[in-house]
């Protein structure tokens, strides 16, 4: 059986909220190392890869590998019943029809129990190659969100160019052009505000802003976001979670002229 207890329901609520507009039905693959999810959006442009490591739960028990096929809209309805600070426990049998969710509020001695019906989801798993990215940029997640939202007002695409001097987001639209350049910046007192750039070669790629704005729904999960780019490969947008867990988004670049 599976039994996984999260100190705060907040984490799962935010993860599901961040991905539910991108993917609808997906398997939560549970094994002894944790709970993983990999799913493409309907148009096969973006890929979500989530890993909640066993260490992020306390306790965590998973006797047999189990795939929990979940409709995220339905899961959202159930998670709405959990307060952010509630202790959340996920439970499932070895061949489950339902996922049992328990929310506990120790202050008010309230215990809520929900059973979510599971579905059989035949999901293709993609092999994500280990990539040595040419550019890795770490920046505040709210800054990245602001840039994407601002540029989307002008255009549907953004060009991202990185050099050792900085990272430049630029777009061209019907009403005009826009560009935001961030230079490397270290703030000892506020390390969350740092912009760090590691570069082995310059990169220039174009991406759909609609997807990037969608990824930015995860900004509440982490104060910083990491962008990993190499020419002619998908962009990796990573939100690191506590206990080496993560929420990653991959986005295929726009190609051709």
């Amino acid at each position: 059986m599976l039994e996984a207890r999260l100190e705060q329901a907040d984490l799962l609520k935010k993860v599901v909220d961040a991905i539910k507009d991108l993917v609808q039905d997906c398997n939560f693959d549970c094994n002894d190392s944790g709970v993983a999810l990999q799913a493409m959006d309907n148009s096969h442009v973006a890929l979500v890869s989530m890993m909640l490591k066993a260490e992020s739960f306390s306790p965590y028990r998973c006797d047999r590998n189990v795939a929990l096929g979940v409709n995220l809209t339905s899961l959202t309805k159930v998670l709405r019943a959990a307060q952010n600070e509630d202790i959340l426990t996920l439970k499932a049998e070895d061949a489950p029809d339902v996922l049992n969710l328990v929310f506990e509020n120790t202050d008010s001695d309230r215990l809520s129990e929900y059973d979510l019906k599971l579905m059989d989801i035949d999901q293709e798993h993609l092999g994500i190659p280990d990539t040595e990215y040419a550019a890795t940029i770490s920046l505040p997640s709210v800054e990245f969100r602001r840039i994407c939202v601002d540029l989307m007002a002008l255009s549907e695409s953004v060009s991202i160019e990185t050099s050792k001097d900085g990272i430049k987001f630029s777009c061209a639209g019907d009403i005009g052009n826009g560009a935001v350049t961030l230079r490397p910046n270290t703030n000892v007192e506020k390390p969350d505000q740092n912009v760090e750039i590691e570069l082995t070669e310059p990169v220039a790629l174009t991406f759909s802003l609609k997807y990037l704005v969608n990824f930015c729904k995860a900004a509440g999960l982490s104060k910083t976001v990491k962008l990993c780019l190499s020419n002619e490969v998908p962009l990796l947008v990573e939100y690191a979670l506590a206990g080496s867990s993560y929420l990653r988004f991959y986005l295929a670049p726009k190609i051709g002229d």
């Binding site: 493409m40 442009v45 890929l47 293709e124 993609l126 759909s208 998908p234 670049p253 190609i255 051709g256």
Partner: peptide, 14 residues
């Protein structure tokens, strides 16, 4: 004009 690539053309099926 650039066209949108598919994630499947970069990451093969397992």
């Amino acid at each position: 004009k650039k066209g949108q690539g598919s994630i499947m053309s970069f990451f093969g099926k397992k």
